[in-house]
Amino acid sequence: MQRGLDSRLKVSFCGIELNSPVILLSGCVGFGEEYTRIKGFSNRDAGAICLKGTTGTARLGNPSHRLAEASSGIINAIGLQNPGVEAVIDDILPTLDFTETRFFANVSGSTVEEYIDVVRRFDDSSVHAIEINISCPNVKEGGAAFGNDPDMSARVVGACRAVTGKPIITKLSPNQTDIAESARRCIEAGTNGLAVINTLMGMAVDARSQVPIIGSVQGGLSGPAIKPIALLKVYEVYQVAKEHNIPIIGQGGIASASDAVEFLLVGAATVGVGTALFYDPMICKQINSGLVEYMDSMGIESIAALTGTLKLSGSVSGCDDRP
């Protein structure tokens, strides 16, 4: 039988107990069961799993190609293909084994009304939390169009807050001028947690055939290429979030335990893994054991103690003058 995870990996996130700080990210693991096809992979190794972005009605998503490899990253333009909230709740959630891990819904919409509708339906479902994706770069309406505007972000979050008692995690876009301001507005509007960051907008061109590789021309860049940006965004958001005790799922290019530690140090309470799974489906196990080794070697009692403990030497000039 399976051995449990080291108890020092346990974290509390938005009031939910997680067995590991490692969360499998939305859009990379389908609706929770896909990776269990691989022998040796277990959902128990993940603290939580974010399900694929879900909208009010079914969406077919974008035309092919939906993927392009970039240097140390990939560009995707899936376009929120999903069967619609009703099918997710009626047909998919009942098949998930909630004894293995926690499941978070991930919600998108073209209008504020659609966000409200989907969140309201998930409120009456078995998911542990609801992640609001206001940062999807791959749809024409809603998505990042909301997330890049702090007023609009706050409106969406506030509207969702009004219709659910479940924890809300707001997923922020890096494609905006002031992510910390956006985070502040979302916190004021009632979010319980923040996910930082979603993909960065990007493009790939085939020089030989002189066409864009991605069918819908542009897509979202993820993977190690975005890690330095993601670290900074988590650091910036943490300066605001810590004052309100709002936890962050740090994400963007995490592919090892040491990457995970870096995100925890700059302020993340938990860490998300997406793109790294494509190369190494067992990455979650690796990160868990790497984190335990790190705690052993550093004499740390619990992973939660690492959050925001980055050592800054002396005055940090020209870096951040926010309160």
């Binding site: 096809r37 990939i74 995707n76």
Partner: peptide, 11 residues
């Protein structure tokens, strides 16, 4: 084009 080949990414 494939990323995960397990049904997870819809790519």
């Amino acid at each position: 084009y494939m990323a995960c080949a397990t049904g997870g990414c819809a790519g």
